[in-house]
Design a protein around this nucleic acid. Structure first.
Lengths: 205, 205, 205, 205
DNA sequence: TATGAATGAGGTTTCATTCAT
DNA sequence: GATGAATGAAACCTCATTCAT
C-alpha cells in the first residue's frame, strides 16, 4: 500500500512534467524550449526529468502517444456507438475538433511541434496519424459498402483528404491571433465532407 | 556586358546555393542541415553563402518566397485562363500536385521544414499560405456566386478544407517510402472536392 | 554546513577560474586568450566558466572590479591611518607600486589588457580609475588646505599627473624584459612628486 | 615626370587611406574597425588598401611611425632652439599637448588603440615612446648637469614620470565627454613638473 | 594598378544530459 | 529517489586577406 501511494506520487510527478512540457513546447516551440523550464514549471529539479523520461524528445513522444492513444480510444468508442457510417464519421470529426479546442496548448504541440523534423514525423508522429487514418478509412469503406458513400473514390485517398481538411482547420485555429470557435466550423466542414463522400441522389459524374 | 555576364554568374551562383540548400534541408532536415554542406554542395566557400543570403534561416525564407511566388503566379495564370470556377479550381489543384511531385526535395522542404517552428510558421510561411488560401477562396466564392457551388459553406472554411486535403496528400507522399504518384491521386481527390462543393442536382440536405 | 562547504567549494572554483583568466590574459593578451585555456588551467570544463561568469569580457570586468575594489580599500585604509596628507600620499603610492609588483600577471592585465578597447576603457576600467583619482585628489586638496602643498595647481590636474607618473613606471616595468624593482623606484618618484607638490620654503615662481 | 605625377597620386592615395584609418580606428576602436570602412572612407576598393599597406596592423604601425617621427622631429627641433634645459622641457611638453589637441582622432589612436595588445605595445609602440623618453631623459640630465635640476632623481625615472603625467592628462582628455582644453592644463602641469625637478633655493630633502 | 567577389580559418557560447552527493 | 552543478560537443558566422579579371 505504501507502494500504491508511492506510485500515485510518482504518477502525479510524471503528469506534472508532461503537462509542463506541453505548455513550454507550446509557448516556446520545441527547439526553443528549455528542459530547465520544463523542470521548473513541473516543480522538480533538472535531473528529475530524466528519471521519468529519457530526454527532451522522449517528452514529445510521450505527449504524442499518451494523448493520441486516449484520443484514438475515444474516437473508436464514439464510432462504435453509432450504427451508421455517416454518423460515425460525424462523431469522430466532431470529437477531433472539440478535443483540441479544449486544450489549446496541446493542440499547438499536435499541430506544429510534433512535425518539427522529418525523422520525428516519420518515425513517431506519423504512426499515430496512420492509426487514425485507418479508422477513418474503415468507416468510409463501410459507408461505401453500405451504399451510402460513393464507390469511385478509394477509401485511403478519401480518408487522407478528410483528415487533411480537419487538420488544416485546426492548424489555422492554432495559429490565429483571434481564433474563431472550432466547434462552430464543424457544421460547414461536415457538409463539405459529406457532400464529397455521399452518393448522389440521382447519381452523377 | 561584363556587368551582364557578372550578373549571370552571380545569379547562377545564387541559384546553386539555393538549390543546395533545398537538397540539404530535405535530406537532413533544417536543424540538422549544416551550412558547410550547403556551401560544399554549391561548390562555394563557407563564407560565400553569406554574401548571397543573410544566414541559414534566410535561406529557408528565400526557398519559400521564390518558389511560393512562382507557384502562386502559375496558379493565378492557370485560373485566369479558365472561365468556369470549377475548371479554375481543378487546374490550380492539379498544378499544386504536379509542381511538388516534380521536385521531391522542394516538396519535402515545403511540407515539413517550412513548418519547423512556430515563429517561422507564423511570421513567414503562413503569409504565403494565406495568399494561396485567398486565391482558393475567391474561386470558390465565384463558383458560389455563379450558382455552381453550394451556398451554405463559407468560402473561407471551404478554401481551408480544400487546401488541407491537398496538403495532406502531398505530405503523405513526401513521407512515404514508396510513394504513389501524386498526379494519379488528383482525380479521386477532385471528385471528392467537387462533390463537396457542388450544388446537388435535386438540391439536398 | 553542507551549504557552507558547497559555498567554499564554489568560491574556490570561482577563484581558480578568475586566476586562470588573469594568467591567460597576461600571457596571451585578451584578444588572443582562449576561453578553453582559461577553463583548462582552472581545471574545469569549458561550460563551467559560464556558470560563474557571463562570458569572456565578464571575466575581465571581474578581474578589474574585485582587485580594484580591494586595492582601493587598502589605499583608503592606508590613507586613513595617516594624519599628514604627505604621509597619506606616500603610503598610497607605495602601496600602489608594491601591490602590482607582487603580482606581475595581474599588473599586466591592469596596465594593458584592461585598456584594450575604447568601450571597455570608458565604460568599465575608467570608473575604477576615477575612484582612485578622487582619492588622490582629496589627499592633495587636504595637503593644500593644510598649507603643506602649494595652492597654485588644481588638485584634479595634480592628481592625474601623479597617477600618470606612477602608472607609467608600472607600465614600463610590466613591459620590460628585465624589469628593475618597482619598490626601488618609489623613493625617487616620491621625491619628484613631493617636490612638485610641496610649497617651497622661501616661496618661488 | 609622368613618374612624378604618378608618385604624387600614389602619395595622395596613401595619405587618404592612412587618414581614413585614423578616423575609423578612433571611432570604432582597432578591433571593431573594419578594413572595408577604411577603404570606403578613403574612396578606394577593399583590395587597394593592401597595395599600400600590408594589412590592418600595418596601418596602425604606419599611423604610429609617421606621426611619431614627425612629432619627434618637431620635439627635437623645439628643444634644439632653446639653450636652457628648462625651456627645452617646457617647449617639448607644450608641443606634445598641442599636437594631440589639434587632432583628436589621432590622439585617440595614440592614447588608446596603439596600446591594444601586449605584442603591439612591446614590439612597435614602445619603440617610439622609448625614443621620446630618451629625449626627455637627455634634457633632464642636461638640466641636472647645469645645476638647475636636482641631482637625486635618476633621469630615466624622472623622464618616465614626466611622460606619464603628460600622457595621463591627454588620455583623460581623449576619454572625457566634455574635455577641458589641454593647452589650458599645460601651465599647472609644468609648475608641478618643474617643482619636482628643480633644485630648491635653500636646498632640501 | 585597381577592383571587389570569394575565401576559409577559427572561437565563443549554449544547453541537453550526466552523476556525485 | 531527487538534486543541480558540472560537463563538453558542436556550428554559425565574421572579416582580414587574396587573386582573377
Amino acid at each position: 500500500m505504501g507502494g500504491a501511494l508511492r506510485n500515485d506520487a510518482r504518477e502525479a510527478r510524471r503528469s506534472a512534467i508532461l503537462r509542463a512540457a506541453v505548455e513550454v513546447f507550446a509557448e516556446r516551440g520545441y527547439e526553443d524550449a528549455r528542459m530547465r523550464e520544463v523542470a521548473e514549471r513541473a516543480g522538480v529539479a533538472d535531473g528529475t526529468t530524466y528519471l521519468y523520461f529519457q530526454g527532451k524528445e522522449a517528452l514529445l513522444v510521450a505527449i504524442l502517444e499518451e494523448n493520441a492513444k486516449a484520443f484514438l480510444e475515444r474516437a473508436r468508442r464514439d464510432a462504435g456507438r453509432q450504427k451508421d457510417p455517416g454518423a460515425k464519421l460525424r462523431k469522430v470529426i466532431e470529437r477531433h475538433l472539440v478535443s483540441l479546442e479544449n486544450d489549446r496548448a496541446l493542440a499547438h504541440v499536435f499541430q506544429i511541434e510534433l512535425r518539427h523534423s522529418r525523422r520525428f514525423l516519420r518515425q513517431v508522429a506519423r504512426g499515430q496519424v496512420a492509426e487514425y487514418l485507418r479508422l477513418l478509412q474503415r468507416i468510409i469503406a463501410e459507408g461505401t459498402a453500405s451504399g451510402r458513400f460513393r464507390g469511385d473514390i478509394p477509401a485511403d485517398v478519401a480518408a487522407r483528404a478528410v483528415f487533411g481538411a480537419v487538420d488544416e482547420l485546426i492548424t489555422s485555429w492554432v495559429l490565429a491571433d483571434r481564433p474563431r470557435s472550432l466547434a462552430g466550423q464543424a457544421a460547414p466542414l461536415l457538409k463539405l465532407i459529406f457532400g464529397g463522400l455521399e452518393r448522389r441522389a440521382g447519381g452523377s459524374r
